[in-house]
């Protein structure tokens, strides 16, 4: 009896998780496995040679161009993350601490407005703003602040960072906001009561307690931006090209899917390493004692 019961319970359990499990398997695990397998094969003109080889990795790691692109991707994503989190924190802090409770959801709603337009359109808009004859340059020239258009704004790493920082701002604001909301306000009063100024209270109480949100924000911004393809393609120019653009070139223009796969695997490994360092390193600095 118990045997049948437990068996039917198990069956029911599998039936319940089957749809998302199948979805995750065919749309996440299978493509990921395919990329991994592909990266150990090689391209022979039109066909793929299915013998195991490390040649793609050797090439990816020895060619300075790939190293440069990967390193640049990490730098641009890192800069984007720092800019985004530094700008997001004050916004989240303001909404959590200085907006009346009944207006908070309205503020959060307003912060998500950038999501209402397509990502692609937002990137194009930055092109219009930052371009040679764009909004920013015309305005500053019209005001007489500058004599000729600034060229360092568009088609380089700066424009990629600006565009990505804008696109990912809500992703950083929301987790930080949530972690600030969870802080018991009497803790801040207790710190004041024990003799600490507002600034020291922020450093000794607010910031450590908001750390989980900050770590989440760092990861949420960094991980997708390392592999971003659209923004560097549209506003990056030659100096703003990132690893994802090279992967796309390998797959679609040079027809070298195995090398593209190897680059993709290396990019994923880099992200994994950085994510681990961030979550373990920063986590340890502020983690509650055991």
């Amino acid at each position: 009896m118990a045997f049948w019961q437990s068996r039917s319970e198990t069956t029911k359990g599998y039936a319940t998780v089957a749809p998302p499990l199948l979805y995750a398997f065919f749309l996440l695990a299978v493509p990921l496995g395919a990329v991994l397998v592909l990266s150990f094969w090689s391209q022979e003109f039109q066909t793929i040679d299915r013998t195991f080889t490390l040649a793609n990795y050797r090439e990816a790691l020895s060619d300075p161009l790939y190293r440069l692109l990967l390193w640049r991707s990490v730098k641009i994503a890192g800069a984007t993350t720092i800019v985004t989190v530094l700008l997001a924190f004050p916004i989240a802090y303001f909404v959590s601490f200085h907006v009346p409770p009944h207006k908070k959801s309205l503020w959060i709603f307003l912060i998500t407005i950038p999501f209402w337009t397509s990502y692609l359109i937002r990137v194009f808009l930055w092109k219009v703003i930052l371009g040679y004859g764009g909004v920013l340059n015309s305005a500053l020239m019209g005001l007489g602040v500058i004599d000729e258009p600034m060229t360092f704004l568009l088609y380089n790493a700066n424009s990629v960072v600006i565009t990505l920082a804008h696109a990912f701002a809500p992703f950083a604001i929301l987790p930080i906001f949530v972690s600030l909301e969870k802080i018991d306000r009497s803790l801040l009063e207790a710190s004041r009561d024990l003799g600490e100024s507002t600034a020291m209270t922020f450093l000794r109480v607010t910031l450590p307690l908001a750390a989980p949100g900050v770590i989440a924000a760092i990861l949420i911004v960094f991980i997708p931006t390392v592999g971003d393809y659209v923004t560097p393609r549209l506003v990056g120019g030659p100096d703003g090209t990132m690893i994802a653009n090279m992967i796309q070139v390998q797959f679609l223009q040079l027809s070298n899917a195995p090398l593209g796969s190897a680059l993709a695997v290396l990019a994923m490994l880099t992200v994994t390493v950085v994510a681990l360092i961030v979550s373990l390193g920063i986590g340890r600095l502020v983690r509650a004692p055991k």
Binding site: D184, S186, L187, E189, A190, S191, R192, D193, L194, G195, E196, S197, R204, V205, P208, L209, V286, R287, A288, P289
Partner: peptide, 29 residues
């Protein structure tokens, strides 16, 4: 302000800092 007064308070919610040890809490001030 509160941090300059010769008073200390025991809060209704205790307001013990969750990210610190007992000793760090007591030594906070």
């Amino acid at each position: 302000p509160a941090n300059k007064r010769p008073t200390n308070m025991v809060f209704q919610s205790y307001a013990v800092f969750p990210h610190l040890t007992v000793a760090q809490n007591v030594a906070f001030g």
